[in-house]
Design a binder for these strands. Structure first.
Lengths: 244, 244
DNA sequence: CTCTTGATTTCTGTATACAGGTGGTATTTT
DNA sequence: AAAATACCACCTGTATACAGAAATCAAGAG
């Protein structure tokens, strides 16, 4: 079996497969990843699997063992907080540069339209909002926002975001439809609007500060889960990797 | 030949070998990297070479070609500027967190001692400073500075810094001993002192701003080379990858 | 019973064989 | 002569074979 349709199809399959095994919690933090076991489980050969492990090592989801091979990484609360702060900082950089350098009106229009869509999803009160709709629109909004940055910076944002608990939709999984999270969405949308406005007004510093503060919502949600309601841990993907 | 001394010794050799070929300019921007050619040139087999290429792809020095394989990436002036801005932002984050969270006195002492060493190297005027000494001490200082950050953030800084022209010592290569660069070192040292002071005084915002501005020295040097004296391009490693 | 030591088993890192696809070239056709 | 097509060489992605190094387990000594 060689030269399948997509470019490096087996490697992609391996990457997704292993990532899924980790994020879903089937492979717990600290577990050593046996290549042969994974090869058998995923039905691929060692070469693309090793490529996937190397990539996951770069992403930070697994770490190299000095004596050889890889292990599922575990994250302390502080490390997760730093990863969130890191994302906020990078998004802040992206928005500051976008504001300073200017954004084409067409793109601003697309952002505004997404904002209106989110408003629509939030219509009504906490009980009967369209949570699933919000999740999708929020993801689309953030992606468009990143699209304002240059390739160099977008690449970094995407890398940091590949850590599942640092992503802006980490606590917006459809499985995590919890009132505590839903309540935070109104404030989030206020921040969305302010960010777009700051970019339109070329207020770089304000846009940067807003992006940082916006990312800290994830930190609030994280601390809520860890300190207030640990039962939610298994409803948020990859939070099983967080110890303490 | 298998299982040499270090962990993945051949892969390391491949990584350094290919990186050198690119940075030294032997492989020009846009060149397609033929695996067989490189294998022959470096005296290793395809497997570790492919691992190296994948890593260089992550670092951004090479880019994947849709139809397969990799090519040496080329960087526009804007992309280089963004990479420098990115480094400054990350270093700013590291310093801000260090200032906010506090640093053990022992570590502050090490930084102060390095500062004094740099002062010593700068003694005298522009003509008879100890340039080579500065280069080494500056590298050590920056590394210690990064060491203040958490692993999560340090990893990102190291990744961005792996782009040779974004590194803080990009224009401090011993081959690039040019008066224009030497003159900038006095201002740089003033910033070094201010950064350490800001951390000691827990002035997070100031430390962050200083780190950003400090990184922009690299931007100044870049623009000097590109606009004032292009003959320096071949004296600064990897600047041959910058087009325009 | 515990600790050390030796052998075995398993694993990773490396080399290489294989198959399909891509790009280039030469030939043919219009 | 220009364009289209068929053929060929090369190259990448994948699978697998191999060798040295760990880790594990068992047996023996203290």
């Amino acid at each position: 079996m060689s030269g399948m349709s997509g470019r490096a199809a087996q490697s992609q399959r391996a990457l997704m497969g292993v990532r899924d095994l980790i994020v879903s919690g089937e492979l717990r933090a600290g577990t050593r990843l046996s290549e042969l076991t994974l090869v058998e489980r995923l039905g691929i050969s060692r070469t693309p699997l090793r490529a996937a492990l190397a990539q996951l090592g770069q992403e930070g989801l697994v770490e190299a063992i000095p004596s050889g091979g890889y292990a599922v990484r575990s994250f302390s609360r502080e490390e997760v907080i730093d990863a969130i702060e890191l994302r906020g900082t990078l998004e802040g950089l992206a928005l500051r540069l976008a504001a300073e350098r200017g954004v084409a009106p067409a793109r601003m229009g697309e952002l505004t339209r997404l904002l209106e869509g989110i408003d629509e999803a939030l219509k009504g009160d906490v009980a009967d909002m369209n949570f699933d709709g919000y999740v999708d629109l929020n993801a689309a909004f953030h992606e468009k926002l990143w699209g304002l940055a240059s390739q160099t910076i977008r690449r970094e944002i995407e890398r940091v975001t590949s850590l599942p608990f640092a992503s802006p939709s980490a606590f917006l999984d459809k499985q995590a439809n919890v009132e505590a999270f839903r309540r935070s969405l109104y404030g989030a949308q206020t921040q969305h609007r302010a960010m777009v406005e700051a970019i339109a007004l070329r207020e770089g510093s304000r846009a940067e500060a807003l992006a940082r503060e916006h990312a800290r919502l994830a930190r609030q949600n994280l601390e809520f889960v860890l300190d207030q309601d640990r039962s939610l841990i298994r409803r948020v993907p990859a939070l099983s990797l967080v110890v303490g």
